[in-house]
Amino acid sequence: MQLDYLATVLLSSLSSASILLIATLGLAVVYGLMGVINLAHGEFLMVGAYSALTATQIGLPYPLAIPFAVAMTMLIGAIVELLIIQRLYGRIFDTMLATWGLGMVFNQGAVLLFGTVSPGIGMPQWNFSIGAYSLAVYPIAMIFVAIVMLTFIYVLMTKTVYGMKARASIQEPQMAQAIGIDSTRVNTMTFAIGCGLAGFAGAILLPIIPATPSMGLFFAVKGFLAVVVAGPVALTGTAATALGLGGGASITASYMSSVFGDVFFFLATALLLWLYPMGISSRWRRKL
């Protein structure tokens, strides 16, 4: 086997894993810091993609369309938390049902507003080559984006007062209140941030994954599994599972076929959950 082929496969697998991680981090934040499984996460990603697309269509340059998408999804997220999620804390199945329903509403809303097919915005046509193989720069750049995103969330959650309050609120909700943390406001903020991260993912991935009303489903399933396998240390755990499961699936796919890639993903997930029912990070001594 040639070295250049191996390097190409490794890089593009790392890129696929990073894309999965980018799409999943918002889910990990909401699950890890609030204990809420947001089944509408994929639809928030879709809302972010359409927000960015609409912004570019009305003339905003793409780099500015991304913060616009983040602001939109954070706003919608905050409203959803205030109206629905806030009433359902501690009722995990009820929140799953409510967010699932919400996802359907968003999905159909997008069909009504934008139709089922929409124009992509085209990937920047930069390429580079390794030996005999040529690779597009943009998907590979997602590795870097994933690292920046991870660092941003880690710093936000460990170095800021808001982050400390958010972690205190999920670890011991009653004690957090008893020492003066207004957990209602902290939760609204955390949910909005989780949705904003989904919006960011939808916007930054728009050149790779065009906006369609049902685009969220693909990421929702794999992202959800990655977060559940990760367990209580949500951030580090999800980085590990997205890299392991997503990267592994991608490598399998490039040597066999994409069907085998998915088979690998789901078999590995089942195996890991059988070995670690509470998630792989249940015994980790880490903050996040």
């Binding site: 007062v161 309050k165 972690r167 205190a168 670890q171 004690m175 008893a178 003066g180």
Partner: peptide, 26 residues
């Protein structure tokens, strides 16, 4: 100020953070 039976410190936060978050929240 309240010290509950069973302590209920924030387990995945450092000693410093446990104290800092209480101060900052007030």
């Amino acid at each position: 100020g309240y010290v509950p039976q069973g302590r209920f410190v924030f387990p995945r936060m450092t000693v410093t953070e446990n104290i800092a978050v209480a101060a900052a929240a007030n």
